[in-house]
C-alpha cells in the first residue's frame, strides 16, 4: 500500500484530499436540497457588496497604517504625552471587542455629540452633532482603522526596533535630527519588515468588515454579508445565501493571499539573497554578522552572488521577479522574514 502510493507526488495526494472534502460538502448540500438556481440568480446582488467590502478594508487599512506608525513612534518615545496617549489607545482598542467599538461609535457618539451641543450651545456649531452621526460603512472604516491600528502599532514598533541600534547611532553621529534619522534611515528599513504583516492584517480586515452588517446599512452602501443576510432571509434561502457569501469572502482572501505571499517573498529577500544555481561562475561572499547592519541574522548561512544586479531595497515593492525565480531551488521551505515581528494571530 505504502509502496504503491510512494510514486504519487505529494501535491497530487493533497489535491485528492481536497476533492474528497468538496465532494462530501456537495453531497451534504445536495441532500439539504441546495438551490443552485437561486444562487445563480442572486449571486450578482450579493457580489455587488464586494465593492463596499473592499472599499471599507482599503480605507480602513490606510487609517490603520497611519495610526500604527504614530502609535509605534509614541510607544518608543520618551515624551510622556506621546507615550501615554499611544498606550491608552492600544490598550483600549486591543482590550475591548471590535463589535462593542462598532456600536460605541455608531450609537454612543451621536448621542454624546448631541448632549455636548445641549450643554455648550455657545461653543459648538449647530451641525456639530451631525458631524458625528455617521453611516454604518463610515463607522466601519473608522473603527476597523482604529482597532487594527492598535494591533499594528505593535507590529510597527517591533519593525522599528528591528532596525539595529548601530543604524540609529550612525545617523546620530552624522548630526541628524530625530526627524531626519527616522525619515531617512530607520523608517525605510522598518517598512521593509512591516509590509508583509501589514498585508496579513489587510486580509484579516476584509473578513472583519462582515461585522459591520450588525449595524444595519442603507441599501446603497451595504457590504457583502449584509446583502447576503437580507436576500437570504427574504427568500428563506439562508443556507444558499450564507454559502455564497462565504464563498465570495474565501475567493477574495485567496486572491489577496496569493499576492500577499508573492509580496512577502520579494520584500523579505531585500538584502540577503541566495546564489542562483544556474550561474557557472560565482563569487560567494558568505555574510557574517558584521555585514553593515543587515538587520536580522545575516549569519544564517545565506550567500550572495556578487555578480547579481543590486536591488533597490528602499522601494520594497520594486524588485525583479526574474531574480527571485532563479533562486527558488536553494531556498528553505518557508521564506524567512527578516525581523519577523509578532502580530495578532488570526484564526
Amino acid at each position: 500500500m505504502a509502496l504503491r502510493s510512494a510514486g504519487v507526488p505529494f501535491r497530487v495526494k493533497v489535491a485528492a484530499v481536497w476533492a474528497v472534502i468538496f465532494a462530501l460538502l456537495g453531497f451534504l448540500f445536495w441532500s439539504a436540497s441546495f438551490d443552485n438556481q437561486w444562487i445563480r440568480e442572486n449571486i450578482g446582488f450579493i457580489a455587488r457588496g464586494l465593492l463596499f467590502t473592499i472599499l471599507i478594508a482599503v480605507f480602513g487599512i490606510v487609517i490603520a497604517v497611519i495610526l500604527a506608525l504614530l502609535g509605534a513612534l509614541g510607544r518608543l518615545s520618551r515624551n510622556p504625552v506621546a507615550y501615554g496617549v499611544s498606550g491608552f489607545y492600544t490598550s483600549f482598542f486591543r482590550g475591548t471587542p471590535l463589535i462593542v467599538q462598532l456600536f460605541l461609535f455608531y450609537l454612543a457618539m451621536p448621542r454624546t455629540a448631541l448632549n455636548l451641543v445641549d450643554k455648550f450651545p455657545n461653543f459648538l456649531p449647530q451641525n456639530f452633532a451631525q458631524f458625528f452621526t455617521l453611516e454604518a460603512f463610515q463607522v466601519g472604516i473608522i473603527v476597523l482603522g482604529l482597532n487594527y491600528g492598535a494591533y499594528m502599532t505593535e507590529i510597527f514598533r517591533a519593525g522599528i526596533q528591528s532596525v539595529s541600534h548601530g543604524q540609529s547611532e550612525a545617523a546620530d553621529a552624522l548630526g541628524m535630527s530625530y526627524r531626519q534619522k527616522m525619515r531617512r534611515v530607520v523608517l525605510p528599513q522598518a517598512f521593509r519588515v512591516v509590509i508583509p504583516p501589514t498585508g496579513n492584517e489587510f486580509i484579516a480586515m476584509m473578513k472583519d468588515t462582515a461585522l459591520i452588517s450588525v449595524l444595519g446599512q442603507s441599501i446603497e452602501s451595504m457590504e457583502l454579508f449584509r446583502r447576503a443576510q437580507l436576500i437570504g432571509n427574504a427568500d428563506v434561502k439562508p443556507l444558499e445565501a450564507l454559502v455564497t457569501a462565504a464563498g465570495l469572502y474565501w475567493a477574495l482572501t485567496a486572491i489577496f493571499t496569493f499576492f500577499q505571499s508573492r509580496l512577502e517573498r520579494r520584500v523579505s529577500k531585500g538584502y540577503v539573497r541566495a546564489v542562483a544555481p544556474t550561474r557557472t561562475e560565482r563569487r560567494k561572499v558568505v555574510l557574517t554578522g558584521a555585514a553593515g547592519g543587515a538587520p536580522h541574522g545575516a549569519a544564517s548561512g545565506y550567500a550572495l552572488d556578487a555578480s547579481d544586479a543590486p536591488e533597490d531595497v528602499a522601494a520594497a515593492g520594486h524588485t525583479h521577479a526574474g531574480t527571485f525565480e532563479a533562486i527558488e531551488p536553494l531556498e528553505p521551505d518557508e521564506p524567512e522574514i527578516p525581523g519577523h515581528v509578532p502580530g495578532r494571530e488570526h484564526q
Partner: peptide, 28 residues
C-alpha cells in the same frame, strides 16, 4: 547636533545604511 557635524565617526560594525548605495551613503 552641531558638535557632531564636526566629528566624523567610524564604527567597529561599519553601520552603513543598507538601503542606500555606497554613493548615497556618502552623500547622506
Amino acid at each position: 547636533r552641531q558638535l557632531r557635524t564636526h566629528c566624523g565617526m567610524v564604527f567597529q560594525q561599519f553601520n552603513l545604511f543598507p538601503h542606500m548605495t555606497a554613493l548615497q551613503n556618502v552623500m547622506e
